[in-house]
């Protein structure tokens, strides 16, 4: 599989971060983040732990609040206005490191819950959509089971299907394979690759450099709350500009 064609230069901006700053108490986690993600673009964010990459991605659907700067998602600016936040969350799907499926609901119920309650989709239709996505992630036969009865890889694929059921325009992934056994990482990555090929706008925090090489349009490297380097994968891996990036790459690629 190879990276698809570059998105057309004039395609619309889906996510825009301008001078975003965030503090945890006095600790400065995000420092002047500027970023633009266009429709259909696939961004991979990497960096050492504590570099603020998760915090940044979680600011985009307001799981974390930024204190300075501007975040515009799908044309709507994130402010304290609850209606804006909920509108954005409808359009932005998120997949977590620890899956966060709802353990008291079956796989199918997990998938139809938000479409039925937030989008007011009738149950029949929501279930059809859910089954379609469960087939896409290759586990339609588990629909009646509870999350606790599935393996980690299966749970993460359900989590992806659950997000897709809302028909989001953007998908965020926060270290989706970090909590999985090595054997299960591939099945989740395959799902993500096929999602990328369908043209979804994706932003993914991950350490899977193979995934970055295969599907990313742009790889962003972060350290200490700053974006250190942002380049297409070919450039990023073969010709890293910054010393810090070179050190990081030498550490994760040579072992």
């Amino acid at each position: 599989m190879t990276a698809n064609a570059q998105p057309a230069p004039k395609s619309e901006v889906m996510i825009e971060l301008v001078g975003v700053n965030k503090w945890y108490d006095k600790f400065h986690v995000l420092k002047d983040i500027n970023l633009e993600v266009r429709k259909g673009e696939r961004i991979v964010v990497c960096g050492p732990s504590g570099s603020g990459k998760s915090t940044m991605i979680r600011c985009i659907n307001r799981l974390e609040e930024h204190q300075k700067g501007q975040i515009v998602v799908d044309g709507i600016e994130l402010t304290n206005d609850l209606r804006n936040i909920e509108t954005i969350r409808k359009e932005v799907g998120m997949v977590f490191q620890h899956f966060n499926l709802f353990p008291h609901l079956t796989v199918l119920e997990n998938c139809v819950l938000a479409p039925m309650w937030v989008r007011k989709t009738p149950r029949k239709e929501a279930e059809q959509t859910a089954m379609m996505y469960l087939e896409k992630v290759k586990i339609p036969d588990q629909a009646k089971k509870y999350p606790g009865q599935l393996s980690g890889g299966q749970q993460q694929r359900v989590a992806i299907a659950r997000s897709l059921c809302m028909n989001p325009r953007i998908m965020l992934f926060d270290e989706p394979t970090s909590a999985l056994d090595p054997e299960m990482i591939k099945e989740v990555l395959d799902t993500m690759i096929s999602l990328a090929e369908s043209g979804m706008t994706m932003m993914c925090v991950t350490h899977e450099m193979g995934f970055a090489k295969t599907v990313a349009d742009k790889v962003i490297f972060m350290d200490r709350g700053q974006i250190v380097e942002s380049n297409p994968p070919h450039e990023f891996f073969n010709n890293p500009q910054n010393e810090r990036t070179q050190l990081f790459l030498s550490q994760i690629l040579n072992h």
Partner: peptide
């Protein structure tokens, strides 16, 4: 967080 991310309110 999962409930928030789905926009449940």
């Amino acid at each position: 967080e999962a409930a928030d991310a789905l926009g449940l309110g």
